[in-house]
Design a protein around this nucleic acid. Sequence first.
DNA 1: AATGAATGAGAATTCATTCAT
DNA 2: TATGAATGAATTCTCATTCAT
Lengths: 192, 192, 192, 192
Amino acid sequence: MPRSKEQFEKIRIRTRNKILAKSLDLFATKGYDSTSASAIAGACGLSKSSLYHHFESKERILITILENSYYDWKEKYGVADQFDEPRQELKRSVLASVQSIKENPKFYKILSELQEKLPDTEEMQKLIAKISSEKMADYASLFKKMGFKDPLDEVYFFGATLSGAIRAYLIIGENYPIDEIVNRLLKNYEIF
Amino acid sequence: MPRSKEQFEKIRIRTRNKILAKSLDLFATKGYDSTSASAIAGACGLSKSSLYHHFESKERILITILENSYYDWKEKYGVADQFDEPRQELKRSVLASVQSIKENPKFYKILSELQEKLPDTEEMQKLIAKISSEKMADYASLFKKMGFKDPLDEVYFFGATLSGAIRAYLIIGENYPIDEIVNRLLKNYEIF
Amino acid sequence: MPRSKEQFEKIRIRTRNKILAKSLDLFATKGYDSTSASAIAGACGLSKSSLYHHFESKERILITILENSYYDWKEKYGVADQFDEPRQELKRSVLASVQSIKENPKFYKILSELQEKLPDTEEMQKLIAKISSEKMADYASLFKKMGFKDPLDEVYFFGATLSGAIRAYLIIGENYPIDEIVNRLLKNYEIF
Amino acid sequence: MPRSKEQFEKIRIRTRNKILAKSLDLFATKGYDSTSASAIAGACGLSKSSLYHHFESKERILITILENSYYDWKEKYGVADQFDEPRQELKRSVLASVQSIKENPKFYKILSELQEKLPDTEEMQKLIAKISSEKMADYASLFKKMGFKDPLDEVYFFGATLSGAIRAYLIIGENYPIDEIVNRLLKNYEIF
DNA sequence: AATGAATGAGAATTCATTCAT
DNA sequence: TATGAATGAATTCTCATTCAT
């Protein structure tokens, strides 16, 4: 145990983060399946074997990205446990989601890709399902508090527009008027 | 046997169609990238080299599928050149789209996959862009005829909901209440 | 279907046989685990991918070698179903075994290696067990016919000497006096 | 703390012994080639680099195991320099060998594996040859003293049975009646 | 029209080992 | 003494594709 235990930790974390960041880039751009371990290593200036020194598998890199991003998101933008007015909380949560997507579109691109293909492992399947469903459940509880008789129906409609807008934004980019669309959606619920 | 030429042609077309059909299945289920030429050949009861006898590349199979499906769809369900009432034409076109998706979800799954990743070749890129944008242009002209000042804005909103619902249907399947959502969307435009 | 169906078959068989022969050499010399698919391909003047065109896996090559050799051996040297005198049949079978080992020591080297390590797959396990046990059962039935009260005990003793001699021959080679040892072993049972 | 030097030495030796013991286990169970340096380090609760701190290579670990076990064996069970009666000494030595195998089958499994494949280095080759031949020479001198005209022939026959029985014991395990076979072998030389 | 043979490039991953601290 | 970081070379095997017949 040399003096540099902390130094090691620093190096390790820096390399790990680099791998995660470059993988995020590559996965978002070329897709997870089409990104090779070689490409990730190359982008990080590492050898393939060094990559495997930090992550046991390509899938583990992906899972780590998903988990990190998910927990980040939840902490920053998730539906609060306590809130005064469901309409205002819905607004806050939706705007926060949009904000999150603008800040981290790559994560959502990856998520989008994964939702469409059948996952390689059960662990992935569960993780995707968890991330995908949680938001819907949150929205459903808000619509219930807003007094809708069929909150789930409402979530379906609301969710269709929201997710359609998000997907378009992810594909088209900055030129897509996501803010206007979201505002108009909220206006339909008399949220201004 | 002077008619053997025609028979050859028949066989040729039959084989081609088999390849296209099986590829559609496989691309939709496992994704384009994850479907190997071997798998397609196997599914068709052909050798790999026979496959390449009919199509110069895997990508050419994909492009053919996209083009065929697109022209089929346009013929059957596209916005008509001549119509009486834009509201009724919008309804007809939207319901036709939904119908088309229900009839051929595989094609839309593939399209969805392709929209999200950057295409391998320019030809693919253009084709995807064309298919993706054309419908929007059709809808825009309808909204214009319906008297909207900003028909493009309207298309964005309308399109967000519609495409969000379609995507959910493609992922979730029969249990997703796509008809209800579409009806509600039309109702918002006073289309019943 | 060109004229050359038979030619194809010829080429195919020749290549397969080359692969099997070279693999036999390499497995016997360096051991199965330590022989790489690359090495086999190289020895055959083939690319790695061509190797996999002929055999689905390295293990399949091994299994094919074992099965071929085993059936060859059984046909040529196995204990006959019909025989006059068990002592003479024992002699015939043992000398045939020795002959077989002299003719095909490589196969026995591989078998020897495999008997000592835990097999990778169940298929291998069963195959090894089958080849290993069959001869012992044959000998047991002969000793029974020779009037031994405890034929299995006799097989154990007889088999220890025989297999010890065989193993020494496989390791040491031509200089090992296997014939003398086998003759002496038979003499102990009054077989001349 | 002037005695820390000795303590270091103690730790060093303890770690070395742990490495040797765990390696013995792994080599015997999975084979030398199939045991990775990683696996050894893991089994010892050490890092891979610590492993290489104690042994310059995987092969050095193997060689050390072989040498240690060999010298242990020789000291405890080898043919004595001085003895009264060759028959009794043969009996003592053989029974001791069997005892040794029962006590340390792992070492003999490794030895058996190594005898069958061509060694990676000359050092290994010589070591294996030495261990393998020395016992034979010892037995030869005993048979000579017992008055056999061709003691080497006798060793060949005697050795075939003994080594055949040992190998069967190593493969089959406790259920193999090695004691009975050895007793019967000795009885053939009128040793009771 | 059809196909078996063949391949170079590349996939994910593991290996034994070195080095700086 | 111990170890985390790093790596080049190797592993088995798959890929899309070409070619001769």
